[in-house]
């Protein structure tokens, strides 16, 4: 796999992170726009790479762990851009850019420059649908965690009475951060649900059974249940704000643990060993 595009994307993400950080530090207001453009450029470069890979293999080239990470970085960057521009929440960039930089960086370190091949069992129209839904769900959870982190930071400053009123004029309010967090969780949950459903249908079509209790499936189900509980707690008890943000971050770390653990420790069909 040609890594040139991805490497360029990595550089873009790095510069974007630096730009957002500089903007936060109040060095230069224009960094905001530059950082956003760099993030967009990085995402675009990744899209080009995936398009190239898709043309090469005839399907979505997401079959092993590094590729998954790279794909996750790309989707997170795209979804992050949407949040930053549509909801005018520049501060989210401060979290998103470094995350995608780190994720793509790890992916590139693990990625060998080998030719892309796709196992015969995966050559299916279900692959892009299932994988995209699953990673879009993860990307949204990444963003939700990022937004929660911003929430907790702002909240702590507001409680401690150290929040600066001058800096970042249109900085989002706690209420908005909380609402965006909720929406991201809701959409992420929907994506995860659909991913599990499509996965089950695909498995049934390929192997003849919906569910085989392999590690990724079990963990996905557990995570699905946890996120369901998180959303439910908001709707019924009214847990929001600080508690919701903290739980979002805790759940996200569970998600990261399961994703890394399943992929590297007990790989099943999802870990790149397909049989």
């Amino acid at each position: 796999m040609d890594l040139a595009w991805a490497s360029l994307a990595l550089i873009c993400y790095f510069l974007s992170s630096a730009g957002f950080a500089a903007e936060r530090a109040g060095l230069w207001r224009r960094w905001k726009t530059v950082a956003q453009l760099l993030l967009a450029a990085g995402a675009l470069l990744q899209v080009i790479e995936f398009a190239k890979g898709a043309l090469q293999t005839g399907n979505l080239p997401v079959t092993n762990f590094p590729q998954s990470l790279s794909f996750l970085a790309c989707l997170t960057a795209l979804a992050g851009l949407l949040v930053i521009t549509r909801l005018r929440m520049t501060v989210v960039g401060t979290v998103v850019s470094p995350i995608v930089f780190v994720v793509l960086g790890i992916a590139l370190l693990m990625m060998g420059p080998r030719r892309l091949t796709l196992p015969a069992t995966l050559r299916s129209a279900w692959l892009p649908v299932h994988v995209t839904l699953a990673f879009l769900g993860y990307a949204l959870f990444v963003l939700a965690a990022g937004v929660s982190l911003v929430y907790l930071t702002y909240e702590r400053r507001l409680k401690a009475k150290t929040l600066s009123l001058e800096d970042g004029g249109p900085a989002p309010s706690l209420e908005k951060l909380d609402r965006v967090n909720y929406h991201l969780l809701g959409w992420g949950f929907l994506m995860l649900t659909l991913a599990i459903a499509t996965g089950a249908i695909w498995a049934d079509a390929t192997w003849g059974h919906f569910w085989s209790w392999e590690p990724q499936e079990s963990w996905s189900l557990l995570i699905w249940l946890l996120y369901a509980a998180l959303l439910e707690s908001r709707l019924t008890i009214g847990w929001r704000g600080r508690r919701a943000a903290a739980l979002t971050i805790i759940l996200f770390s569970v998600l990261v643990g399961s994703f890394v653990g399943v992929s590297l420790v007990t790989p099943g069909k999802h870990g790149g060993n397909f049989g």
Partner: peptide
């Protein structure tokens, strides 16, 4: 009022 704007969106 500025602080209210940091807590509440609308």
């Amino acid at each position: 009022v500025s602080l209210a704007g940091k807590i509440f969106d609308s």
